[in-house]
Design a protein around this nucleic acid. Sequence first.
RNA 1: CGGGGCGUAGCGCAGCUUGGUAGCGCGCCUGCUUUGGGAGCAGGAUGUCGCAGGUUCGAAUCCUGCCGCCCCGACCA
Length: 572
Amino acid sequence: MRYSEMFLPTIRELPSDAEVVSHQLMLRAGMIRRLANGIYSYLPFGYRAIRKVEQIVREEMNKAGAQELFMPMVQPAELWQESGRWQLYGKELLRFKDRGEREFCLGPTHEEVITDIVRNEVKSYRHLPRNLYQIQMKFRDEVRPRFGVMRCREFAMKDAYSFDADYAGLDMSYQKMHKAYCNIFSRCGLEYRAVEADTGSIGGSSSHEFMVMAQTGESEVVYCPQCQYAANMEKAEIAKPQDVAPLNANKFLPMEEIYTPNVRTIEEVCNFLQVSAKDVVKTLIMVADGNPVAILIRGDEDVNEIKVKNYLQCAEIELADETTIMSVAGSPRGFVGAVGIKCRVIADYSLLGAGNVVMGANKEDYHSKNANPGRDYDVKEFADLRVMHDGDVCPRCGSLIRIVRGIEVGHIFKLGTKYSEKLRAVFLDAEGKERVMIMGCYGIGIGRTVASSIEQNHDESGIIWPMAIAPFDVIITTVNINDELSHSRSQQLYDELSAAGVDVLWDDRNERAGVKFNDADLLGIPLRITIGPKKISENIVEIKERKSGAVTEIGFSEICSKVLEVKRKLLG
RNA sequence: CGGGGCGUAGCGCAGCUUGGUAGCGCGCCUGCUUUGGGAGCAGGAUGUCGCAGGUUCGAAUCCUGCCGCCCCGACCA
């Protein structure tokens, strides 16, 4: 492609409303333009990167035995009513009516449609397993779209769905996808980690997120440098403490009520009573599917709501409102404790062996000191309910864990029968018995993958593409396009490289060298060949690697094979 | 949905307090010079000042309503 003919509008100045690097650089490098809130167009340069990622995804998915198909983005309400998600999905599901007043939605995902297709066509175990995928636009009416293409409303996603006859089959399908995802993200040149994840509202038994490591990532993940354990924050397990000394009732001090006017937060309690947060018990009243429950945790720890939700196996969980707190504790927020509380009580492991603690007295403006379990209040259940933090140890091997930030680019789930049951996707097994198909689903955010590569690979001057997903392999920078020899040699090289299957952008614009060099750096094309008037008269050109900055001078006749060699090397 | 901020040329912004016919930088167009890290000189084009209403002789500026966008929070496959 000739730069002078390409639609490639670069921006010199920083766009004011772009927060993260990938968003800024994608705008500046002429990759994307915003159409509406959370809705973006990909311009030619950006779309080339998208296509490269898609191609890698296709190759690896096909290699893993999946088959590509293409499903509609507009989906009828009936299907969603059948799965029950028409009610459950909430406002992220964009709904509308056609001219005949029939209800539709824009697909935020395609479990319903794929299950409908498969249930209509697959009736026998002989036709299982199957894995079908597509690369399609999804629409999710996000509460707050941001970070450009990272968290937007309309986005391209590769979604695959597996159908198996039994759970052993699902395990195999899942493993194949896990492997394929590793191949995909490795080939894209990303530093990533597969972490255990909570299955969330999509349901199912097991799940991994593929996280690209980046400071600007929206979620935190923990991993163990010693063993293989890795999980996201919601899921990160904390082992039950082993060597906890049993409470000795002889050491119990008499419980006292202390007047603590307007002292509500843990911090205020600590200051007022001159105690450490570790001696205070935090009592949170939560409502799980309508039932109040008290969660006890050490004052310096935080409750992980997902863990509570999973422990209680409830559908909804939220902090209780003032009225509910009043009715179970008899006191307002800030003075709640376990003594005499009128609801189920669950304590975090951090309270195992804790005695003579401070907690709310369930009486406005009072706290209790030297409260003790067994004597003053009852705790029958202990569980892992807290948020992991620095200093915690690996639940598998006991080494210190690490916490890093990441961007979720892929997510795989074992769905089980959640959709196949609702939509009656059944088949006959070898004995002629009807059985429900076992499903898995597997997603990759295409645009997000491109954006996360930029988050991971850039410098002050611009993007630094890995060869595998770079929009072009090489840029030829002709320093002075009006110099006849420079022009003819550039043309010759451009033709030669193109014929050899290299994606080459030839900067043939009548611009000053500085402008071209800066654009080349901004665009981040892995290799730059500079053709200048002096050097080319001696048959010499320069080749510069964007990533290392290393410059090599080389004879004109050897440049083409050199490029092919370096390209091969950079593709690994 | 709550809190904060912003809307003026393609982009980035000033002007608004104190009302008087719209400005800067970049970009764009023309010409000449220049050509290895975002050139110089000369000339030029470009605006429903987000929208609607109100106050006023007169509104980008003051008032009211609406719309859009950004940030923080809540939420979230």
